Simulated scan of single mutants.
Amino acid sequence: MNTAMDARPPRHEADPVLTIEDFSVDYLGANTTHAVKNVSLTLGRGEILGLAGESGCGKSTLAYGVTRLLKPPALITSGSATFHSREGFSVDLATLGGADLRAFRWDKISMVFQGAMNSLNPVISIQAQIEDIFTTHRPEMKKAERVERCGDLLERVGVDRSRLKSFPHELSGGMRQRMMIAMAMALDPQVMIMDEPTTALDVVVQREILDEITRLRSELGFAVIFITHDLPLLLEISDRIAVMKAGEIVELNDAYQLYTNPRDEYTKRLLASFPSLTGKRGDFIRTGIADDRLTETDQEVVAS
C-alpha cells in the first residue's frame, strides 16, 4: 500500500478553486425568510461537487448569491465567497462591481441556469448568441475567429456546426441544453455552476448530458457545482455531495461514503426514497428491498 499517496490531503483542501465561508442570504419583507444560513463549502479544482436538497431549500439562492446575481429583496447578510485562480491570485467576489464583475462572470465562473432551455433568445440564431460572448469578453477576436470558435464549441458538446444558423425553436430539448453548456464553457472558465441542467429532459437525454459533462470536465479540468434535487443522479457523477435542508448544509461527504454511511437523518430519508426499478411496489432502493429507514407510515404513503 502506498502510504504517501494515502496521506495526501483531499483535492478541495490541497487545491481549492472556490471557498464559501459562513454565507447567509435573507429575503426581506413583512416576514423575513432566511433562505441560506451560514453555509461553508470548499470546491476543489477539477472536482464535481453535488448540491442536493428538496425544492425551496436554498440551493439556487446560494449559487446566485455566490455569483452576485441576486436582486432585491434578496440580501447577503454574512459570509464571503473567494475565487482562487489557477494563475495564483485570489478574489473576494464581494469586492467586485461594475465592469470588474461583468468581466469576471463567464470568464472565471460561468453558470448554466435552471430552465436553461428557455434561456436562449428565440429570435436570434445560435451563432449570434454564442458570438455575443466573444464580442463582449474577447473584443480583439476577428469575425472569422469567432465563427470558427463557435463551431468548435458546438462540436465539443456533440452538435454539428451546421446548427450555428439554427434558431432555438428548431432544436430539440437536449440540443438546446448542449448549447447552454457550450456557451457556459466558451471562455474556458475554471468553475461551472449547473443549476438543474437536466430538468425536463427525458432519461435518455439526461444520460447523454451527464456523460458530456463528465467527459468535458476530464478534458478541460474545470470544477463543477451540480445543483439538483435528484440525489441518485448526483451519486453517479459527483466526487462529493452536500445535502441542503432549509437553507443549511446538513451533511457533506464523499459520494460513496454518503451513500453507504449517511449520518444525518434527512440524508437517510432522501436515500430511502429511491424508487425501485425491480421488486414489489413500495420497495424503495435499487436492490428492490424495502428500506427500514422509512417509517411504516412513509412506506404506506409511497406505496398507495
Rank of each mutant, 00 (worst) to 15 (best):
N2H: 12
M5I: 10
A7N: 13
A7R: 03
P9M: 08
R11C: 10
E13L: 15
A14P: 08
V17F: 11
T19M: 08
I20W: 02
E21K: 13
V25G: 14
A30P: 06
A30V: 11
A30E: 15
A30M: 13
N31M: 10
T33F: 11
N38M: 07
V39K: 06
V39A: 12
L41Q: 08
L41G: 10
L43H: 03
L43T: 01
G44Q: 07
G44D: 04
E47R: 04
E47S: 00
I48P: 01
I48K: 00
L49D: 02
G50S: 03
A52L: 08
L62H: 07
A63P: 07
V66P: 07
L69P: 01
K71I: 07
P72C: 04
P73R: 13
I76M: 13
S80W: 03
A81Y: 04
T82K: 14
H84Y: 12
S85M: 09
G88M: 12
S90M: 09
V91G: 00
V91F: 00
G97F: 02
G98I: 08
G98F: 03
D100I: 05
R102E: 12
R102Q: 11
A103F: 12
R105N: 02
K108V: 01
I109G: 00
V112M: 00
F113T: 00
F113H: 02
M117F: 05
S119T: 05
L120H: 07
V123E: 06
I126D: 00
Q127M: 11
A128M: 09
I133S: 05
F134D: 03
F134S: 01
R138Y: 03
P139I: 09
E140C: 05
E140G: 14
E140M: 06
K143L: 14
E145D: 15
V147N: 05
V147G: 02
V147F: 06
L153E: 10
E155N: 15
V157K: 07
V159G: 08
R161T: 09
S162W: 09
R163Q: 13
F167V: 10
P168E: 10
H169Y: 15
S172W: 13
G173E: 07
G173N: 02
R176D: 03
R176G: 02
Q177F: 14
I181E: 08
I181Y: 13
A186T: 07
P189L: 11
P189M: 09
P189T: 03
P189R: 04
Q190S: 09
Q190C: 07
M194D: 00
T199I: 12
A200F: 10
V203T: 14
R207C: 12
R207H: 13
E208Q: 15
D211N: 13
R215C: 01
R217K: 14
S218T: 01
G221N: 04
F222H: 07
A223W: 09
T228W: 06
D230V: 10
L231P: 04
P232C: 14
S238P: 03
M244P: 03
E248P: 01
E248V: 06
E248L: 06
I249P: 02
V250Y: 09
E251H: 08
E251D: 08
L252P: 01
D254H: 09
T260H: 13
Y266H: 00
T267H: 02
K268A: 01
R269T: 03
L270A: 04
F274C: 02
P275I: 12
S276E: 12
K280F: 13
G282E: 15
I285F: 11
I285V: 15
R286C: 06
T287I: 11
D291Q: 10
L294M: 14
L294G: 06
L294D: 11
Q299P: 00
E300H: 04
